[in-house]
């Protein structure tokens, strides 16, 4: 479904990505794990078109994404839920969700998608009229994912969904991620919480200083000695 080959991205003199290749297949959860500064967010931003790579290929079902603008990429159903939730704090929860389905004009369709999101995150329904800026961290993450779901994504790019959340909320968010995937949406998941990410993912890639160091099935990586030592904190 998503096919990335030999991707290079520079920020001025800094080489952020140095030949990343990865694949996300239909209905898969793929985790991309790695430390701060390894290039995880850069990878996602390049997929969604916010950053243009210096070289490499990104294809989504035979469509060359590098030539497209971010809004065209969104139209294909590749939905990026950014790091730090990035709510439009000046807008209400409803308006944020409405923007998630920006291309949709039919009222009934919007209603349908809203009720789908409320089924997953009932809390958002209670907060509908509130400015997004007044939500708690957990609610903001729900809003960010809910806003992504409003677009009916084919491929969901999630950037650090567990960041800054309490353990209970982390559990909740990850079970939602699993549910979304079971309904047929492919997910590329970025996480520092590698243990959690590997527990839901089918496959995973380990990114270090802009290069893929390891890849494999999630359960294999969980048992890999290096991954255990560096990312899972097991001695």
């Amino acid at each position: 479904m998503l096919f990335i080959e030999n991707l290079f991205v520079n920020y001025g003199m800094i080489k952020a990505l140095q030949g990343v290749s990865l694949v996300v297949k239909e209905k898969e959860i793929v985790a991309l794990i790695g430390n701060n500064g390894a290039g995880k967010t850069t990878t996602l931003k390049t997929i969604s078109g916010l950053i243009k790579p210096t070289s490499g290929k990104i294809y989504f079902k035979d469509i060359d994404l590098i030539k497209l603008s971010p809004c065209q990429i969104t139209k294909l159903g590749i939905i990026h839920v950014p790091e730090g939730r990035k709510p439009f704090a000046n807008l209400s929860v409803y308006e944020n969700l409405r923007l998630g389905a920006y291309f949709v004009n039919k009222k009934s369709e919007i209603e349908e998608r809203l009720s789908f999101v409320f089924k997953i995150f009932p809390r958002l329904k209670e907060r509908l009229k509130q400015p997004a800026g007044t939500l708690s961290g957990g609610e903001l993450q729900m809003l960010a994912i809910g806003r992504g779901l409003m677009a009916k994504p084919n491929l969901l790019l999630l950037d650090e969904p567990s960041m800054g959340l309490s353990p209970i909320l982390v559990e909740e968010i990850f079970s939602v991620i699993k549910n979304i995937n079971e309904e047929g949406t492919a997910i590329l998941l970025i996480e520092q919480n590698a243990a959690k990410a590997l527990s839901v993912a089918h496959r995973a890639y380990v990114l270090e200083t802009g290069k893929i160091m390891l890849e494999g099935k999630a359960e294999e990586l969980i048992n890999n000695e290096n991954v255990k030592n560096i990312y899972l904190g097991v001695k």
Partner: peptide, 10 residues
């Protein structure tokens, strides 16, 4: 409010 996130909304 936020251009990059607006892009991501399409």
């Amino acid at each position: 409010y936020d251009k990059d996130t607006a892009f991501l909304m399409g």
